[in-house]
Design a binder for these strands. Structure first.
Lengths: 180, 180
DNA sequence: ACATACATGTAAATAGTTACATGATTTC
DNA sequence: GAAATCATGTAACTATTTACATGTATGT
């Protein structure tokens, strides 16, 4: 799913400026997608050229004038086709796990810090997702599902981190003291 | 963690050719890292220039001659520094969750297929990880941990998919039949 | 006969991010 | 007085993948 189509998706939920699309992605898609202004603004220009979105300029008091984009019917049709043709692929890249793979090369104080940081990060992410899930009214069924999905993964990981952090450190201490 | 440093990591476990590094990444790192030949061979050339690896050419019977790389002491030192300075960041990108976010725009037959595919993918990944965990001898503590980490996440997700797939479809049917 | 494994490497294309450029207003 | 929010946009850079180029040997 490229940024162009992600913008169409956000606009399918209602008109928005480039700036507002970025905010929407941060608030509602951040645990599984990201985009910077440097990709959003060129995407909106391309989508305008392609006729998938149109915009009006809206002057504001004490704020810069903004371009408010909305989906054309051609854009809505196109986005439907995208949804029907996109494969449900996923990718996960973890420097944390790379560091764990080479745990035996690092001092135990460093590993203690890494495990603690990761545990904190997971706990924080879990609280963000649970916060949105519990406190937001008017979530679509799909959005509730994406939140529950993130909560399920992070809950599983938090349990593991709590059970295994200290035993991993013990195992590594044993490997260290036992020469081949 | 860029490909250069990932190559150093693989080589810290023993000498290898570019081809063998790719295989090692597929077998031991695939659930949290990836790399293609187009990035591995240039990385090895760069690392050789920098003096972090050296190689010998090994002629083989009935196989092309290969370059067997191994870490220099400078490379080993450098990789240690990389390990000490790398932040334990993670990134997750999911087209599956994007599709779920827009579940209300898709026919229920399509959603049924997507949910089934995702469930199958998670189950398959889980079995791969459990297979390696149970059947491999001589895993390092760090590698066992990376496997358990993947298993914990996927087990949490599989439980969710099994509980929620059908209720999500029901919820969407209700939203569809209830006009605003 | 067709695909897969072995083995190395380059060039073009992809898809972004980061930093820059500009500037008012509001909050801490 | 500094940082954050609002607001748009471009240019340079980064890091990678995909496709190409080449060829033998083995398995199906």
């Amino acid at each position: 799913m490229n940024i162009d189509n992600l913008c169409l998706g956000v606009l399918s939920m209602g008109e928005a400026s480039g700036y507002e699309i970025k905010k929407a992605l941060e608030q509602r898609f951040s645990h599984f997608q990201a985009a910077s202004y440097g990709s959003i603004y060129p995407a909106l220009a391309k989508l305008t050229d392609a006729g998938f979105v149109s915009f009006r300029e809206e002057a504001q008091e004490k704020r810069p004038t903004k371009k408010v984009f909305n989906l054309t019917s051609s854009g809505r049709e196109h986005f439907f086709q995208v949804l029907m043709e996109t494969n449900p692929t996923e990718q996960y890249r973890s420097d944390f796990l790379v560091l764990m793979m080479f745990a035996h090369l690092q001092p135990s104080e460093r590993l203690r810090t890494l495990l603690q940081q990761q545990t904190d990060n997971i706990r924080a992410e879990l609280q963000i997702l649970q916060g949105i899930f519990n406190e937001s009214s008017e979530l679509t069924a799909g959005m509730r599902f994406t939140l529950e999905y993130g909560i399920a993964a992070n809950q599983g990981l938090l349990n593991l981190m709590q059970q295994r952090s200290s035993t991993l450190l013990d195992e590594l201490d044993q490997e260290r003291s036992k020469p081949a």
